[in-house]
Write a protein that binds this DNA or RNA. Structure first.
Lengths: 206, 206
DNA sequence: GGAAACATACATACTAGTCGGTATGTTATA
DNA sequence: TATAACATACCGACTAGTATGTATGTTTCC
């Protein structure tokens, strides 16, 4: 009758778990609800994943990591003026954020970090890995800007990258409490102002 | 035998609930654990609070709001160069953060905002009130700085205040995932750098 | 035929909240 | 001032529901 496709089953479980976790958090995520939304049974889920925690780990390693790669790591690797590349990436991401209802739901990576990092080392270390890749992408483009003379060299590229990610997550977090468009726009405006301050004086002329 | 003291009972419940919520979040907070840690009984708790949610609301209105007032609103109201007042307040807060184990547990207000704002309007509006008071304190000192000529007037004080709070929460959130001292120090360094960029050129000479 | 993939029923542990009842404090009245 | 009448504060066993995870059986595929 029903043809079996373990890869597809596993993939559907990961996607459904990702959505469930994004909406209510990991601990409040219901295994039964994930099963209902996919049509998969409990036996199948516990065949593919040892327990709920391992399912959560796989969501970080596979779904969320890919999400960040697509939206941030790859766009930040493009050519062009370093700060412009960052600005464009932030703009694009903020537009797709509106589409994904991220203003209300928050960043899936940061949500999980806030909830699980202090209480589960398995989550913490996996989330850290994704954050490091994300910040690494910022670091690379900033270092390139420094070599090309468009980014200030009196500041450490890694520190700047860390702060940009922190500010981004901070902005998304604030908007989550007060999802007004004007509120979000004001935040972005200040973020772009900060980005301009890390340009070299020569590059700021533009 | 035991003398009754309703005010004390209520206060102890609020403090214990605050700690419990800070550590595991609101939804994972166990009423029974709060009762065990205080020695108060279930009947007494449900005499003082209608339900767990109302207890949570009271924690925001009374405990967390007071926490922010002490650590931020009052210090930011002090006299002196506006940006210096902000720097000092951030420094003091970051030191007491180490003492409160906030690096691992995160900001109690933001934790609750991230967890509850999207799913409970009662929490969201109360948390927003506290955030607005917090940002209001920043706005006031920044406006004063603008009047005194130490803060740039080409930027909107409210937007700056919002961004500073967002960046602070972002930094605390990042440190929660990676509580290394050097990591936190790097973030603070960049935050102070940003604060210097909102000074007027004349004030930056110092 | 044997292992992987899936299905179903159930075990166990937790949760918030309720409810009948008791103890203590306060106020009114004679 | 003594006492009745009432209000507030508190007690703790219990309920109903939900959670993850397991044990065992069945189907599909190589």
């Amino acid at each position: 009758m029903t043809t079996r496709d373990p890869d597809k089953t596993r993939h559907e479980l990961l996607e459904a778990a990702f959505r469930e976790i994004w909406e209510v958090g990991f601990r409040a995520a219901s295994v039964d609800r994930i099963l209902r939304s996919t049509g998969v049974t409990k036996g199948a889920l516990y065949h593919h994943f040892k327990n709920k925690t391992e399912l959560g780990y796989a969501v970080v390693d596979e779904v969320i990591a890919g999400w960040i790669r697509e939206r941030w790591v790859e766009p930040l690797g493009r050519e062009g003026d370093a700060v412009d590349v960052i600005r464009d990436t932030v703009r694009t991401a903020s537009q797709s954020a509106v589409h994904d209802d991220m203003m209300a739901k928050g960043c899936p990576l940061n949500n999980l970090a806030q909830e699980m990092s202090p209480i589960d080392e398995g989550f913490r270390s996996r989330i850290e890995t994704v954050f490091l890749r994300w910040m690494g992408a910022f670091t690379r483009v900033l270092k390139r800007g420094q070599e090309e003379g468009t980014v200030r060299t009196d500041l450490d590229a890694e520190h700047m990258a860390q702060f940009v990610v922190a500010a981004l997550e901070g902005v998304v977090g604030m908007v989550k409490n007060n999802p007004k468009v004007e509120f979000a726009a004001g935040h972005l405006e200040m973020l772009f102002l900060f980005l301009d301050t890390i340009r070299t004086p020569a590059a700021q002329a533009a």
